[in-house]
Amino acid sequence: MKFGIVVFPGSNCDHDCYHAVKHVLGQEAAFIWHANPDLNGCDALIVPGGFSYGDYLRAGAMAAISPALTEIKAFVKRGNPVIGICNGFQILLESGILPGAMIRNKDLRFICKDTFLRVENNNSKFTNKFNDKKLISLPIAHAEGSYYADAEELKRLEGEGRVLFRYADKEGNVSNDTNPNGSLLNIAGILNKEGNALGMMPHPERSMESIVGNEDGRLIFESMIEAVS
């Protein structure tokens, strides 16, 4: 299987994603420069984290109108899996592939720490390898991760099982106290309506090997591989 990793000026998690799928999981991987996006041969895409275009105007706003996004939208429409991580999530929101928007963290700080995530739906293209695992731990690293959508949209996301991950404590409880950034309903990751595009603020590519203390991120990429095969 071949993963394409879309690179914008200012992306900085692109090489981590490459390492994760290529060296840890033994899949094919290729960088795709945003200005001349050739997605031929890619089975899945990763829109990595970072600070595309310096976060000018709004995080992800400039990247969302780059040539790559036209191609990514068509790629999503054809039913292929796409994961947007951190700034990648913000880009998928700004481009309209996913509903809602990100605002500044409630305490205005850039937060870099491990979080526990409750897995709300283990029957998606990104969680089919989770089996009974209902709780994972992944790090977050962002300043604009407070998810916002209007009440109607939130109801739709909930009703359709499209909230995939929620910030929780180590027992899996979800409350205001376990919400690091002010995200509505503790949302950490959501799916598009068709279920083939995921946006998530936590970084699975940083939790791929026991040597770094945590392998929970593997499950997400392994699920994508399962979904494609």
Partner: peptide
């Protein structure tokens, strides 16, 4: 401007 009802942490600070 942020819409009414959208949290504005900068404004609050």
């Amino acid at each position: 401007m942020l819409k009414e009802g959208v949290l504005d942490p900068q404004g609050k600070a």
